[in-house]
């Protein structure tokens, strides 16, 4: 069961990743990228990394991809910039795949919530918000503080780059 879910999910991730670079229309590419990220989030849950999986969906598939979409729409690309598109004409198939992905997510989440799971070698808080937070604020406190500097630099850089005239 676990192996079947792994194979299905990674197939979805790989096919969607291929479509990201094969599509000419950037908006379609962003949508396939979101699919890859969600499939990877399922793999993360399977690896008992619940917190990272949620971060993946919220930060990656949510925030960063919306930023991409926003910029693509801001650029106002012309249709002839894209070239030919690879059309997917299998709408029922696409819906079926989406359903499979959804059911997989539910099954995996259900399985990882059961406390008496195999991972007996792991501590109870492995991958949870509590576990990651404790690591982040004790062992890795200094790098964690440094990320704030990185974010400040990124904000300043984005403002400077996008400004018409300084």
């Amino acid at each position: 069961m676990e192996l079947a879910i792994f194979i299905l999910t990674s197939l979805v991730a790989i096919v969607a990743a291929l479509l990201v670079i094969l599509q000419r229309n950037p908006i379609a590419s962003v949508m396939y990228l979101v699919t890859t990220f969600v499939a990877q989030a399922i793999l993360f849950i399977q690896l008992r990394a619940a917190f990272i999986a949620i971060l993946q969906v919220i930060v990656y598939a949510g925030a960063i991809m919306v930023l991409f979409l926003f910029v693509i729409m801001l650029l106002n690309l012309r249709r002839e910039d894209f070239g030919k598109d690879i059309k997917l004409r299998f709408k029922p198939l696409a819906i079926a795949f989406a359903m499979v992905l959804l059911i997989e997510t539910l099954v995996v989440i259900n399985a990882s919530l059961v406390p008496a799971q195999p991972g007996a070698d792991l501590s109870a808080t492995f991958g949870s918000v509590q576990g990651v937070g404790k690591e982040l604020f004790t062992t890795y406190l200094y790098p964690f503080e440094l990320t704030s500097v990185l974010l400040i630099v990124a904000i300043l850089g984005a403002v400077v780059m996008a400004k018409k005239k300084l």
Binding site: F68, V71, L75, L122, F126, Y140, P143, L151, G157
Partner: peptide
């Protein structure tokens, strides 16, 4: 069975967010 990788992924996500912000402004 160690949580170090999770923290590393957290850092990589921060870097990716910063990179997306700066890179997209370069594209604009």
């Amino acid at each position: 069975g160690s949580m170090g990788g999770h923290v590393m992924v957290f850092m990589i996500m921060t870097v990716a967010a910063a990179e997306a912000a700066v890179g997209l402004s370069i594209i604009i």
